[in-house]
Design a protein around this nucleic acid. Structure first.
Lengths: 86, 86
DNA sequence: TTTCATTTGTCCGTATGTATT
DNA sequence: AAATACATACGGACAAATGAA
């Protein structure tokens, strides 16, 4: 197994594990403010999980205030100054 | 009672009896390696017992190394060469 | 204007995981 | 052991929004 694969046996839901990975990429600056997060299709290919799982992960990131989503366009990284709380 | 019905009066737990039946179907080759075991719903209709009992039986088969399970997909017959010897 | 590709939104069906009663 | 409910996951289909050709 590669280091960047998710672990179905981990106990923690795949969508949560994926949200954690993406959060790390955001906090590290790899995914910069106002820059788009990879599309659901791209993410589903990168990690390989279903789109359903991708959408759960992105929903979680929205709940954490790390991204915002625009239908027909994509999801974008919320700038730190716009993040509620934290 | 039909010959292929399980026997609640047997003393041995229904789930164990069912596990034995399924093990026989696996060892006979009726359920081939990497092929899916019937879904919990199908099994619950074939034998008629609750899903809970089905799940106990499948858990037993996992413990015996005869099947592996993938959440959201199903359970599959472990090829003989991959079965940890008992 | 229409057409098209891309992306997210929604709904459906099926299956397993976990918990409660 | 049974019955129920809800969460998580996979797969497919179609709708809605966006933007470009």
């Amino acid at each position: 197994m590669h280091d960047d694969d998710l672990d179905p046996e981990h106990g923690r839901p795949l969508s949560q594990q994926l949200a954690d990975r993406l959060e790390a990429r955001i906090l590290s600056g790899e995914l910069a403010p106002h820059r788009p997060v990879p599309s659901e299709t791209q993410l589903a290919q990168a990690y390989p999980v279903s789109r359903d799982t991708i959408r759960r992960a992105v929903r979680e990131l929205r709940a954490r205030g790390l991204v915002y989503t625009v239908q027909g366009k994509g999801s974008y990284v919320t700038p730190p100054e716009d993040r509620p709380q934290a």
